[in-house]
Amino acid sequence: MEFGNSGSLSEDGIHLDMDRLKKGEVNLGTSIMAVTFKDGVILGADSRTTTGAYIANRVTDKLTQVHDTIWCCRSGSAADTQAVADIVQYQLGLFHMMNGKLPTTQTAAAIFQEVCYANKDRLSAGLIIAGWDERHGGQVYSIPLGGSLHKQSYAIGGSGSTYIYGYCDANWKEGMEEADAVNFVKESLKEAIRWDGSSGGVIRMVVLTAKGADRHLYLPDTDYKVRHQ
């Protein structure tokens, strides 16, 4: 296996692979987040995908649907997170058919965690699961690198998130109106994109409520002010 040059060689010659990506592997150097609000939950992400310094895709969709109103934000290896999301999408579809009822966000989070934990040595995937269901409303679960599972009111992830911990802590409020929550996500991601070199491009969002999934798109051309699509 060929490694990138970001790793270091220890004294006994063992290669320490710092970012665990193979040379040339596509990385989602990312800013992702999901927040609960009054009527449900909102997922948001930037759109930059990189292989090293090269931007492989500037309009990536990192918000992936795994069921009607259960989605996830992907960060880490593009290949790994796509594969994991595919597995969970299949499992939730099966759950829906076999049990004749909709899977809950919790069900999705549990399956995501199982896959991430069981394969923790082989995956680089940082995921945020967000979904809406009748019984529990909007919910957010975070599954960071080791495969642990954390239920949160809101979650941020990816390399860009480190720049906005303070901003989010200061500005997140319980039970926001939809417009305010959209604005909170947008402003947070704008900051993350501004400071993080590996984040950029457009801002994508998905609003999950009783009405279903609603997509938002904001372009840098208009300073993320206008909602497109």
């Binding site: 009527d39 449900g40 009748e134 019984r135 529990h136 409303g137 909007g138 949160q152 009111s153 039970g175």
Partner: peptide, 14 residues
């Protein structure tokens, strides 16, 4: 799950 999770946050219950 680590902890029981937040009691706040979940909105939009039917």
């Amino acid at each position: 799950e680590v902890g029981s999770g937040p009691s706040c946050g979940a909105g939009g219950k039917v």
